[in-house]
Design a protein around this nucleic acid. Sequence first.
DNA 1: GGTGAAATCCTTCTGTT
DNA 2: AACAGAAGGATTTCACC
Lengths: 155, 155
Amino acid sequence: MAYTLDSTDKKILNILQNEGRITTKALAERLNLTTTPVFERIKRLEKNGIISKYAGILNEKLIDRKLTVFISISIKDHARTYVENFLKEMESIPEVMEVYHIAGNYDFLVKVMMKDMEAYQKFVLNRLSVINNIDHVQSSFVLTKNKYTTAFELS
Amino acid sequence: MAYTLDSTDKKILNILQNEGRITTKALAERLNLTTTPVFERIKRLEKNGIISKYAGILNEKLIDRKLTVFISISIKDHARTYVENFLKEMESIPEVMEVYHIAGNYDFLVKVMMKDMEAYQKFVLNRLSVINNIDHVQSSFVLTKNKYTTAFELS
DNA sequence: GGTGAAATCCTTCTGTT
DNA sequence: AACAGAAGGATTTCACC
């Protein structure tokens, strides 16, 4: 790695991962430091890309995106152009939140979040099934989200 | 829904989802508004739980969590106590980032992020295989993360 | 690595339309 | 719903340890 995180960096990151809008001053008080070193450390962590962004996380139920589906997809032709075409297509669809190239029974795992089953049907019909390189598709519908975090526990 | 989001709310949310630490003043300037209405709208969106939190998002490669695995798990006994026991166990493991109860070929989808394959082996051996209600486990190793966003496109 | 202080900028509230 | 203005805080830089 470019450099190592000391215990103060880790404490800062553990807090910022869960309270991204905390003031530097409040963060400094929790660590029993003054604002200057904390300010400088945060700026450094941002500049080095360790903190890649700050995200306001919305409650999907309250903005009418109640349906989450994980779609396992295998493709027929694994030639580069076909794979890139598939990925470009997925990239352009706003309801597609995540796309992973995976090793295992399928080639890709795709997470979509949408309003309801009708929207999902339309997505499959109009966006997925029109890609003619697709071999097999298996949809896993999320019944409950039992755990979800973007925060790593740094120690 | 409790109330509807107007177009100003949506613009605020679209920005805060991607720039969670932006100042109210800078946000207001982008919308050609003064700080007061923007400040009040943000507070309301937070209070109503539409914005559930602000998260600093870290680059997993730079903090030594290069391996992501999606684990599909089916359980033998679906009695409530067994399910709750499984979920409690997953909840307590920091490398487990996400757990979904799903409908489909498996019962649960679990996302873990760890240092390397050795750490994953230890996780399977010491945390997963000791749960004796587990029937079948299928691991999908992430080769590349092609798309990842926590932001919904509100319009 | 850290502190303290000063200038600047932002937040937050009140009064007004 | 939004604006303008003001007081109190926070950010950011700088000199110093």
